[in-house]
Design a protein around this nucleic acid. Sequence first.
RNA 1: GGCCAGGUGGUGAAGUGGCUUAACACACUGCCCUUUCACGGCAGCAUUCACGGAUUCGAAUUCCGUCCUGGUCACCA
Length: 553
Amino acid sequence: MNETERVELSNLLFPNLKHDREYYENMYPERDLPEGAMVTRYGPSPTGLVHLGNLLSAFADMSYAKQTKGSFYLRIEDTDQKRMVEGGIENIVGVLNDFEIMPTEGYTFGGNYGPYRQSERTEIYQTYIKDLIIKGLAYPCFMTEEEIAAIKEEQEINKTKIGIYGVYATDRDLSLEEIKEKISNGEEYVIRLKSPGNLEKQVEIKDCIKGKLKFPEHNVDTILLKKDGTPTYHFAHAIDDHLMHTTHVIRGDEWVSSLPLHIQLFQVLGFKPVKYAHIAPITIKDKETGNIRKISKRKDPWFSVKYYDENGIPIKALHLYLATITNTNFEEWYLKNTDKDINNFEFSFDKQAIGGTSFDEAKLENLCKTYFSRKSGKEVYEETLTWAKKHNEEYAKQLEENKDDMIKFLSIEKDGPRPRKDISKYSDVEEEFSYAIDSKFEKENFSKYDGEKTYDTELVLNYIENYLDLDSNNEEWFNKVREFAIENGYAGSPKEYKKDPENFKGHVGDICEAIRVMITGRTKSPDLLSILKILGKDKISKRVKLYKNYINN
RNA sequence: GGCCAGGUGGUGAAGUGGCUUAACACACUGCCCUUUCACGGCAGCAUUCACGGAUUCGAAUUCCGUCCUGGUCACCA
């Protein structure tokens, strides 16, 4: 086919396009951004639920764009209408909102490079395809699925490379007349790339994360436009990332094998290449097989994004975890910089894992504890309340009714360089601080206490009456407890008791334990005096009496 | 099967030829601190970096082979 024939063909195939390539090139000019600014994008397809892997790449997109003062946009990749899920797009936008991974532009976020939904860009794609046809770089292919399947089978038997290329690309050199005839016969067609690649030659590609990668050139006549006139991912990606001036395509590592195609597409289209960064997959060691595998929706609850919200894992703590996965040096930095927040950390591609990153539940939990330990009692209260309003209304109500005391309880042992680490998620608060809300304590009584020991209420009552001074400081208070212990035949310290157990009924610790159980319903708690002070004498006595009833029944 | 990537302790990993008798963190164990728990401190936890060979005065780090694991080979993204 000569050029005039190709022009005729292009008009036959795409008679109704309003604009040409130049029009779009001018419509989306270069972005006006500072030097080194990265333009990234999150391009989900609304075919199901958002999962951890998606979130991780969106998080990386956001982080890199933010720290370089660039742009992070959301592009909906919905070129496959068959796989569309109802509410899929709303879900994506909702998850991004919930997890505070906010695009600066894109679908529902505005911006000058839209539309940000691929199904609304069909004309653009077709315009570029038309141009490719004129240049002889793409062609209509009329092969049926059966024919293609037969070729694949043959290739499998012959152990040659699978796909439509070289001698298998029978429609590559169809004449204009033949094409016209097929079309008038009503034969359906796709548009394929006329791949200039040579399998014998190598392409070298630099991936920002993986480093230098070498592949044989791409030589398959990949489908660019499907029968229904919509583009395949590969083609849409090239057009969109060019027109939207993406600088870095950050995506899952399942894409590295199509890198030669994508590079070739950019070349054929005459676009300036983008940089690629392929993120290692999140993996997990399968309990049954012992093998490492990609994290899975069915087997791993953590895979689903809903898990974090439902279980009360704070969004910011999840960010912390995503950051540790993203950059291997983040964790150390975060532990050292107790006063800094995640925005002060500088992410870099060369600190990103190359192989798989194993999901570590224990690490997540620890990170959550550290996160909570750095929050003030008031902050913990407020965040827990917000969470409870959504997931535990009854508790939310109780929290609101007991706001002041609750904040005091949550603030115990929070000051200083070594704060408590006892909460790893919002849902822990209710359980860990079960003694904090009076009405709740009375109702649940001592049902949470699982020890077998019973304690002497007369002894404790006596102590409260005659020795308890809620205005004293910790040292004064404890000296009094010790004094009381000794007078009642207990050792003044555990050491003393250990030396000569025969001579004592027990030691101070036992007295404290008795008090603790009676007023908190448990053997473990934060600093006792602090709790006593917040409760006040009346509530303390009441609880001891409650305990008395409890053991008598 | 072809192509590509990766294999360092229970886990995540640092490490790019001598500074490594392999950092750091999590987990676990023991001890200490201590009125409980948590925090914190100390110690233990890979005589060795999948395996074999080569290069080198010297290798976890370079090269070759083997094995294992993962990804990918759609008119899905």
